[in-house]
């Protein structure tokens, strides 16, 4: 009987602490989430200009070594951040995949190391238009004469599609 009473006491204490923690968590969680997204928000807004909100998603990329992060947009799309070595160094970009199975957006973030004219073409509207609207299971029309950089980015986008298909489709 004594053990049962002791166990109940401990259970009550644990329940009380659970309640306190839940309250603290409610206050701090939004702030923490906000800080996580703040760093990437400026970049995400290059694709989504309509005031959508974003959320960082915890994901395990396993063998997809070029993927750095994935964000969920309030309209249901998923945005992948990838980085792959192009000709001169890492190329960082964002690609948005919509629930209808097409690419919704693309933004080149850092092409400072790429050769002018060839690699930096990944940052042009031509490349972007080749990506946006294409269905994710079809191959992307690369620039005439695929360069090291554009091939790198396209390969990385393929990884993003694979991860998306495995996890969120």
């Amino acid at each position: 009987m004594k053990t049962v009473k002791l166990a109940i006491f401990l259970a009550i204490v644990s329940a009380l602490s659970g309640l306190c923690l839940s309250a603290v968590n409610d206050v701090t969680e939004p702030i923490i989430k906000e800080a996580a997204i703040a760093k990437e928000r400026a970049n995400l807004q290059q694709i989504y200009t309509g005031g959508e909100t974003f959320e960082v998603i915890e994901a395990d990329f396993g063998d997809y070594t070029t993927l750095q992060g994935v964000y969920k947009v309030s309209n249901g799309d998923y945005v992948y951040k990838g980085s792959k070595n192009g000709y001169g160094g890492p190329c960082v970009y964002l690609v948005a995949i919509g629930s209808d199975g097409t690419f919704k957006g693309f933004a080149a973030l850092d092409l400072s190391n790429e050769t002018n004219g060839f690699g930096s073409r990944v940052g042009t509207d031509e490349f972007k238009n080749n990506v946006v609207g294409t269905k994710i299971d079809e191959s992307i029309d690369t620039l005439s004469g695929a360069t090291v950089t554009s091939t790198a980015v396209v390969d990385s986008i393929k990884e993003a599609v694979a991860h998306y298909t495995e996890n969120y489709k």
Partner: peptide, 14 residues
């Protein structure tokens, strides 16, 4: 543990 976890959450936020 409750106190420490609260401190942890508060520090993560602020």
């Amino acid at each position: 543990a409750t106190l420490v976890k609260s401190v942890q959450l508060i520090m993560n936020a602020y």
